[in-house]
Design a protein around this nucleic acid. Structure first.
Lengths: 338, 338
DNA sequence: TTGTAAGCGTTATCAT
DNA sequence: ATGATAACGCTTACAA
């Protein structure tokens, strides 16, 4: 219970002394190399005895790499708290980084101050690469990364992408088209959309897909848009839509959270789903299974996305060629809401 | 577009050369100290000109500290994906660390391999301290932290706490008692509990509070317990409870997720909430507002918890005294389910 | 197979 | 106010 607040940590030097060999030899048993079994045994004993733990900062400085990869989510806090996919993306990415013996460090950016500090962290050589979720290319971090040529890949398609940074994502347009298409096929005639986050590529693309599916029958009056992928905005958007077009019988909500809000509004308005109105969402997030009825939606292969992003970064770090973009399959899953 | 894969980065040395001064002087403008304004101007110009960015690994090595604090969530992936509070805790912690110019790095532990690697990371001097969410003291990481005397504080009360590590949390027993109490006061006579995660202190404490509130009227037959705080287990637990005691009119679910599952089961069984059965949860997570009706529950001040934890770690790093434990207020919030 | 020594980029001490 | 210079702990040629 007593003792120095911070004991001096044993170094390679101490191990070498304890084992009666040179530091070079110690390093060889640590990092692989030719060592006699006598020496190896002595050194391993010494390591245990003095309680040696390597100092990564020193190693990083000498090697000029950190064996760490940053994971950044660039978004108002809401992302971290609300986004159903981000956790899975992290886990997917971590799984492959872990296998490659890289430490994933996730950095939260929640203020300008954070932005600055993280910038310094990244440029400080603390990570060999980075995975960036939902960046826009005017983000300071994005510029910084391009500038310092840090191996990085985006998750999601930044709108005006810096072509030098690869990305992995899904085909929002195609999936939105597909999900709308089925709404049409199941006989809905007046189909509206609660679009969201049109300032992001994902939001804009989902609207584009919706338009494409409807073709000539597309009616701009049947689209309302809200700023965020969010339950409360789903409520708001659906109310507006219902005001404009009380006879509507199909709705594409830009995300499951939005769909959940829309569902609540429809219920309040006395519309049954799916009997009176067919409703589809996007994301296949935890919302989708929790609503009553469960939501038909587009599945995002979040885990896979994370894996691919990590692989892409690792390849860049290794200096291997990478695909500038990969789009993963995001199939429509039909449940009960449409 | 062309150029070296990785440009050599400018160092203090380069800056010094470009400004025609010594490295010492450069360092002084970087880290504060007496510098003539001439020199300062020249150096600042040189910094911009050569594009100097400090190397944190070198700095860390020299200073023997990293200005970084680790954030670890020790739990099966589910935590990261499901736990509604963890994001808020992170944000709260990050806010205070950020103000103190510390980088929060969150490390995911999702496998034994991760555990090992993170262990090395922590002992490698990459962080000056750590915040640990939901550890148990037999966790290897917990032992390690105690061993290397890394400044750390727990979030949540580890069951058999290593007294040398402070913690911040809430009073699970008291809050469970309070929430059960109100169930009693509103006239419920046959009150059951879907307990969960009894192998954790939070789970066990909530059950204890429940017992305390009921006193003599506590009936062990009205408690079922499930392994995890989870919707699916809520369904399962509630079914079991209903089988045992069809006449029950009040239920305390160990978490909002569990309560949501229980709610669904009650609905399927034709019981109206709150008319036939009063239901309360715990956490005040996003579930609470999403269910129909919304859940009465116990509010966890997650943001505050994060802040306190961060402050505690910073104080330890600074060598200041810290409270061995702080319990934050977790008020009951009444909504519509009871 | 093992030892030696020169870095890696900063910081800190001590003269000047 | 400024300039040398020695750490910091590890890696990596190169010698032996």
């Amino acid at each position: 219970m007593t003792g120095p607040r911070k004991a001096r940590r044993a170094t390679v030097h101490d191990v070498a002394a304890a084992a009666g060999v040179s530091r070079g030899t110690v390093n060889r048993v640590l990092n692989g190399g030719y060592v006699s079994s006598d020496a190896r045994a002595a050194i391993e004993a010494a390591i245990a005895q003095v309680g040696y733990v390597p100092n990564r900062a020193a190693s990083q400085l000498a090697r000029q790499r950190s064996q760490a990869v940053g994971f950044l989510a660039l978004e108002p806090h809401s992302l971290l708290l609300e986004d159903p996919n981000i956790g899975s993306i992290m886990l997917g990415a971590n799984a492959v980084l872990s296998l490659a013996d890289h430490q994933m460090v996730s950095l939260v950016i929640d203020s300008d101050r954070d932005m600055q500090r993280v910038g310094r962290y990244l440029s400080g050589g603390f990570v060999d690469g980075a995975i960036i979720v939902s960046a826009r290319s005017h983000d300071p971090i994005t510029r910084l990364i391009a500038e310092i040529r840090l191996p990085a890949t985006f998750v999601g398609h930044p709108p005006d992408l810096d072509r030098s940074i690869p990305f992995v994502g899904i085909d929002n347009i195609g999936s939105a088209r597909a999900v709308t298409q089925r709404l049409i096929e199941t006989g809905r005639r007046r189909i509206g959309m609660v679009a969201a986050a049109l300032d992001r590529d994902s939001g804009a693309d989902r609207l584009t897909g919706f338009k494409q599916a409807l073709g000539d029958r597309f009616d701009p009056a049947l689209v309302v848009d809200v700023p965020l992928y969010d339950y409360a905005y789903g409520v708001k958007g659906m109310r507006a839509l219902l005001d404009r077009e009380p006879t509507l019988d199909g709705v594409f909500a830009a995300s499951d959270a939005v769909a959940a809000g829309a569902l609540e509004t429809l219920r309040e308005a006395g519309r049954r789903v799916p009997e009176d109105v067919g409703l589809v969402g996007f994301d296949d997030s935890s919302w989708a299974m929790r609503t009553q009825p469960s939501l038909s939606t587009v599945h995002q292969p979040a885990r896979e996305i994370g894996r691919h992003a990590a692989e892409s970064v690792l390849r860049q770090i290794a200096g291997d060629p990478v695909e500038p973009s990969v789009l993963l399959d995001s199939p429509v899953v039909w449940r009960r809401s449409a």
